[in-house]
Simulated scan of single mutants.
Amino acid sequence: MSKTIVITGAGGVLCGALAKALAKQGNKIALLDLNKDAAIQMADEINKDGGDAVGVEANVLEKESLVNAKDEVEKAFGKCDILINGAGGNHPLGTTSNPFLEAQDLINKNEGFKTFFDLDPKGIQFVFNLNFIGTLLPTQIFAEDMVGREGCSILNISSMNAFTPLTKIPAYSGAKAAVSNFTQWLAVHFSKVGIRVNALAPGFFLTEQNRTLLTNSDGSLTPRGNQIIDQTPMGKFGEPEDLVGTTLWLCGEGASFVTGVVVPIDGGFSAYSGV
């Protein structure tokens, strides 16, 4: 049975791949993104491939914007059956320059060099809001219509660094840990009204946000990219399609008794001790 699926952050690489896969299953896809052009372009690609999609501008940090987006979705497809909270990301102001603090770092005056003590609270707040509040607000707007209806669910996007924080990115690691915790809380809270809530925890996937961090201009790996591959038992980055199988399962009837789980999709990264 066709469902109406709303995906935030849908103009990006990973959520775009999920949107295309879910459209191929006969679902109606509403692609929400702050970048309206990116959402419309992704919707056009789905429609040209025989799917049924619409691109909608939405700011996941503004309730009024989300209410307007909901109105557009309902005019096009009806009430939301499945919400995928895919909007998120990091920010340089919430990132340290080095993985470990050394005493000499405190006297480093190089432009742009940041220790933990230099992190900008506004940058930290931006990252936390984008990932956590950007999950909470769409859920408030779209999940109310799910109450008491069969087959409705929410899929959040956490991260494997919610299990074990990565060096240099305390804001992003903390924000994704909050998403995982919220996923479990919400699964319990919604358990009596028929709404399942689960999350994906992707490992390392090459996206436009992290490509320059993990690869050089010639395609070779940066030191951090090599470090990640060395710590990933499967020895590679994930491909967007690697998220599809778990997404289809968690959004489908085959997972009708599954709620409150956060599934790592990381090539074994979170399971590997390094030895």
Rank of each mutant, 00 (worst) to 15 (best):
I154L: 07
N90K: 08
K79T: 10
L31R: 03
I124Q: 04
R149P: 05
I124N: 02
A39L: 07
Q140T: 06
K122M: 07
D105C: 08
D44M: 12
V147N: 09
N90F: 07
T115R: 08
E57S: 11
P92E: 09
E72M: 06
G51W: 04
K28F: 08
I141G: 05
K114W: 03
F77V: 00
K122A: 14
P99V: 12
L61F: 04
G26D: 04
I124M: 15
I46N: 01
I82K: 03
K70N: 12
D71L: 09
M146P: 05
F128H: 15
L32S: 06
A43N: 09
T139A: 15
E74M: 09
D145S: 15
L155E: 03
R149N: 15
F142W: 10
F132D: 08
K63I: 11
V54P: 07
G51R: 10
A76K: 12
P121L: 11
D33P: 05
K24L: 01
D105W: 00
A87W: 01
S97F: 00
K36S: 06
D52W: 06
L106E: 09
D145N: 12
A103M: 07
V127L: 02
G55C: 03
V60S: 10
L31K: 03
I133V: 15
N156D: 05
A43W: 08
M160I: 13
V127M: 02
I82E: 02
L32W: 11
L32H: 09
D33H: 01
L61D: 13
F77I: 01
I141E: 12
S158Y: 04
L136N: 12
G51A: 04
M160Q: 11
A23D: 11
I40E: 15
A30D: 10
N110Y: 05
F113N: 01
Q104T: 12
L34Q: 09
K75D: 11
E102G: 08
V147Y: 09
I157V: 10
F100A: 14
A76T: 11
G50N: 06
G89I: 06
N68K: 15
F113E: 00
F128A: 10
Q41L: 01
D71S: 13
A58E: 07
L119E: 05
M146F: 02
K122F: 00
T135W: 09
L136C: 06
L119I: 05
K28G: 07
F100G: 05
N90G: 12
K63V: 13
T95P: 03
I40D: 11
K75E: 06
N108G: 11
D145V: 03
N85D: 03
D71Q: 13
F113K: 01
L32Q: 04
L101M: 13
K63N: 06
F128K: 13
S158R: 10
F132N: 06
H91E: 07
M146I: 00
N27F: 00
Q25E: 15
A23K: 09
Q125M: 08
D145A: 14
I107L: 11
G148V: 02
A30K: 15
K79L: 01
A43S: 15
E144V: 09
E72P: 03
G86F: 00
N85S: 05
I157P: 01
E64H: 13
V60E: 10
A39C: 14
E144D: 11
A58F: 08
N129F: 00
I82P: 01
L155H: 03
K122H: 07
K109T: 15
T95V: 12
